[in-house]
Design a protein around this nucleic acid. Structure first.
Lengths: 199, 199
DNA sequence: GAAGAATGGATAGCGGTGCTCTCCGCTATC
DNA sequence: GATAGCGGAGAGCACCGCTATCCATTCTTC
């Protein structure tokens, strides 16, 4: 697998233990890492560089678990450089205000918030000026989901496993949510307009 | 903008109305299309080829709206070619069975189902063998979300607008969900482990 | 102990994708 | 009539993920 050599070179995988100058030993942990990297790339859609960042955070030792989870979250939520529509930013801020979370987040500094504002910008750019109406129901549904997520993540053993579960759960979870949402769309749409041909 | 010329060439944008052999006129509709294309690429993360497919479906005239929405959904849910873990497929099938939706979907033929199975495969590959436990709470939350989506989409005027809203709402909605889910994670995690430093 | 296979390490190169540059022939404008 | 601009088409560029090749060394096998 030349790909593995490449990942080693790129620093995505730790070098094996050299038993001799040209003989390195790789254990089960290395294999786990490799599979994690592949999952992040294939399912998470992360770039090599982002994967490196994420793993860097995962491997870092941080005083507080909370901080580390925050850092992981930032790392797996890369920005996307389009500039933001001020109205979209306002949409986001109003949403925060409605949730009593004002001023906690800054669009310019927080990747996740920036992500949200980017999406709202895109919505407005295609004429969907009231997309932000969806934010509240979204949050309502996502609270259920997030609780399940956190329960799942917290049920891990070590703190390392918790951090890793955060990465995996978030990224693979994104993909799962995408798929299940589409299924739910189809299901709800079937309920509403049946199989018929109305408009 | 050479990029526009490129999109024209790639068939992502309809040619302008030629007022003379070297003078084309572009109206507001063209501009809308361009912004839509950019949104699909930037926020939706679609490739040029996928955008072309999606727009092809959007522009096609189909007898039934339901069919068209289904086709759109397939188009915006491109597969990802990794092979599937049979156990992951079983996870998905059991999930369907639990929802009373057996045999409605085939992992090999339906992009969305395949997407779900891919994600479960990735989860298993990194040792998360019980990720499928999350599917039920996910669906529960997503039902709320999907209802809001459908309501939003159905409130459009023409059927063309409905189809377009399906595309936009699904793809931009994915991005929004990603962001809000992370915010919900942070919020729930703050509730649970506070800002403190336990593990 | 010798021959062959295989490894680690490093460099160069390949293939696809999204975009840009340049050129050509034409026509609208001054 | 000169010039500036357009539409159209081809070649080319930059980046990214990956692969192929090479070399020195060393484990394996006889």
């Amino acid at each position: 697998m030349p790909t593995i050599k490449y990942y080693l070179r790129e620093g995505l995988l730790p070098a094996g233990v050299l038993t001799s100058p040209n003989q390195a030993h790789y254990d089960e942990e290395h294999l786990r890492r490799l599979r994690l990297v592949r999952a992040l790339i294939d399912v998470g859609g992360l770039s090599i560089a982002t994967v490196r960042d994420v793993l860097g955070v995962v491997d870092s030792r941080s005083p507080s678990l909370h901080k580390k989870l925050g850092a992981v979250q930032e790392a797996i939520s890369q920005p996307g450089s389009a500039e933001l529509d001020p109205l979209a930013v306002k949409d986001v801020q109003e949403f925060f205000a409605r949730q009593g979370e004002d001023e906690c987040y800054d669009v310019t500094k927080n990747n996740v918030t920036h992500m949200l504002a980017s999406a709202m910008t895109a919505a407005r750019s295609v004429g969907h000026d009231h997309f932000s109406e969806l934010l509240d129901p979204y949050l309502e549904g996502l609270k259920i989901i997030a609780r399940a997520d956190l329960e799942y993540i917290a049920s891990r053993g070590s703190t390392d496993a918790v951090v890793e579960a955060m990465v995996v759960g978030t990224l693979i979870g994104d993909a799962v949510l995408k798929a299940v949402r589409r299924l739910a769309h189809a299901q709800v749409s079937r309920e509403v307009i049946g199989g018929g041909s109305d408009d």
